[in-house]
Amino acid sequence: MDLTLYVWRQKDAKDSGRLEKYPAKSIDPNMSFLEMLDVVNEGLIQQNIEPIAFDSDCREGICGTCSMTINGIPHGPERGTTVCQLHMRKFKDGDAIYIEPFRARAFPVLRDLITDRSAFDRIIQAGGYVSINTGGVPDGNAIPVPKVAQEEAMDAAQCIGCGACVAACKNASAMLFVSAKVSHLALLPQGAVERKRRVLNMVGQMDAESFGSCTNQYECEAVCPKEISVQFIARMNREYLQGRVLPEA
């Protein structure tokens, strides 16, 4: 299949950047989107053009490194997948494809399609952990965890921190990401101890990183490769209110 790509090219963080048009000829429909870009890059190298820079790592849909907005949708048109798991058979011969980086003030573009998403790391550092005092190894099943809580916690823990929620949100809000982390830990007995401090610190860091705030449109959930539910945002709001109003136990 033959395609026309419009790719965001930006030399470095200071460059203003622009969309460049590249033809992508004789693409195998069974290629993944990233493999298609690899092929296009081979061609660019042969023409002495700087290849398109993009992030990728595991290429099996579990790491959350690949990040691009394809035709206006982060991770592309296929629901519940990352870009690396999007295949060219989802496109038609002759299609024009716009490829842009994840856009947010908190995710500055480093080069082409690569953004700096370390704002997420700083949010995790602010409270996305469970403090463990060293000592003897506790028994495996010493702390009973109700099955319902366990399952919901695991639904939230599926978040791979790719940032598609921020990229899709018209407000570049990180609330789906933060709420998944807050919920995941608050639902488990080990994490519940620090729940109040955690939600306040993580939301504080989120605001400091200049993410926007949720207007309940649920675009994030629709593009999330792990299909994290916005019910966790409601849970985070609840946790936040409790953390503010009730004294820490």
């Binding site: 206006g72 003030r105 018209k170 570049a172 200049s210 926007g212 207007t215 449109q217 629709a222």
Partner: peptide
């Protein structure tokens, strides 16, 4: 604040979920 959170807009933007009212 929300407007400031995305200074550079997308060239192409599609909505999947957000209602027109929202």
């Amino acid at each position: 604040e929300n407007r400031e959170a995305r200074p550079i807009p997308y060239a192409v933007k599609k909505y999947r979920e957000a209602s027109y009212a929202s």
